Computed example of a mutant assay.
Amino acid sequence: MNIFTAFPLEVAINVIDTVCSSTMYIGSVPPQITPDITKMNFQYMTPCLNYTVPLLKAEKLWNHPRFRKNRKLVILATGWTNTVNDSETIAMISKAFMCRPGVNFVIVDAAYYVDTLYKWSAFNTDLIGEHLAVGLQHLVEVMPFIEIHLIGHSLGAHIMGKAGRSFERLTGHLVARITGLDPAKPCFRYEKALPGLMRGDAKLVDIIHSNIGILAKRDPMGDIDFYPGGVHPIKPGCLSIGCSHTRAVEYFAESVYPRQESSYLGWKCHSWKELEWRKCDTLTTSTMGYVINWKAKGIYYVDVNGKSPFGKNPNSPKRGRLDCVKHRCKYKN
């Protein structure tokens, strides 16, 4: 899909975005399905067991015998129409993290509150984020020094932004890191109405943009913003906006696998024009994905392949993505 087919889609989405954001700004959102924190859960994923507890009883999860208290915590929130039992995003990222035994990997089960009318789902991101922060507050009461990394795709990125802000309000501390995977665009035009993810929501906010200007935000939003494949909304190897929107998830998941952390190399762009022309500073770099340069700031161009493996860093080890420990489960779910 070239620029002549992508442009009409961007214009149409801009109209939808303006209408949705304006109705929220003036407070005329129709009655929606309001999130009920008692129906929301954390799901702790391991190679052999998925363990679920309510957000309001998060301490049960943190005190679970298989929860490793000396390991960092990674929490994932997905986007619109994605539920914990039916999500391509969860499948890809959880599979990768099962190859990282040094991480506690948890999914936010927001029930059906992001599986309804899009405007309602977008509006629900604030309340879901607040509820998530309450669960995280329970965590730090029993594990005050744990490193927290929040990851969100599409609407999930904005859930994590709100969770980060609410967590700081509740505890006085910022979570370590929030990664936004192609944060959703429609309905997030006006910060006063629905702010979404932004710089300052965590000690480090990093963004991977893959369908810019259509389903996802175009402009830089974090401390470091990666633009794999450049500024075109359709990524290499894709023929649809949905494929491009999911690419951010695929890129990140690929970087989680052991020995794949340096698969994606970003070059710093000192201006948007440099990014458009892909004429960026090859001497100032950062890897993109699970492992990044925490001192890097600004926008970065990343060269990618049109099919898996997507990373093109010539210095990355040439090992397969499935090269991880085989787990022998001695107990049932």
Rank of each mutant, 00 (worst) to 15 (best):
L215H: 00
L215A: 02
A216W: 02
A216K: 04
A216R: 02
A216S: 06
A216N: 00
K217I: 09
R218E: 04
D219G: 00
D219Q: 11
P220S: 14
P220E: 01
G222L: 00
G222F: 00
G222M: 01
G222A: 03
D223C: 05
F226A: 03
Y227I: 06
G229C: 07
V231M: 14
V231P: 01
P233M: 09
K235F: 05
P236D: 09
P236S: 10
G237M: 00
G237C: 01
G237Q: 03
G237P: 02
L239C: 05
S240E: 03
S240L: 13
C243S: 10
S244D: 11
H245A: 10
T246N: 05
R247S: 10
R247A: 08
A248S: 15
A248Q: 07
V249Q: 00
V249T: 14
E250H: 09
E250P: 08
Y251C: 09
Y251P: 09
A253I: 02
A253H: 01
V256L: 13
V256K: 00
V256N: 05
Y257G: 00
Y257R: 11
P258S: 09
R259P: 06
Q260M: 09
Q260H: 15
Q260T: 11
Q260R: 15
S262Y: 04
S262F: 08
Y264M: 10
Y264I: 06
Y264L: 07
G266P: 03
G266N: 07
G266K: 04
G266M: 10
G266F: 08
W267I: 06
K268Y: 12
H270S: 15
S271H: 14
S271L: 12
S271F: 12
W272M: 15
E274W: 09
E274C: 06
E276N: 09
R278W: 08
R278F: 06
K279G: 00
D281G: 08
T282E: 13
L283T: 15
T284K: 14
T285N: 14
S286G: 10
S286W: 15
S286F: 10
G289L: 03
G289I: 03
G289D: 01
Y290P: 02
Y290H: 12
I292A: 03
W294S: 08
W294C: 07
K295S: 12
K297N: 05
I299N: 14
I299K: 03
Y300V: 09
Y300L: 14
Y300G: 07
D303I: 07
D303T: 11
D303H: 12
D303C: 09
D303K: 15
V304W: 01
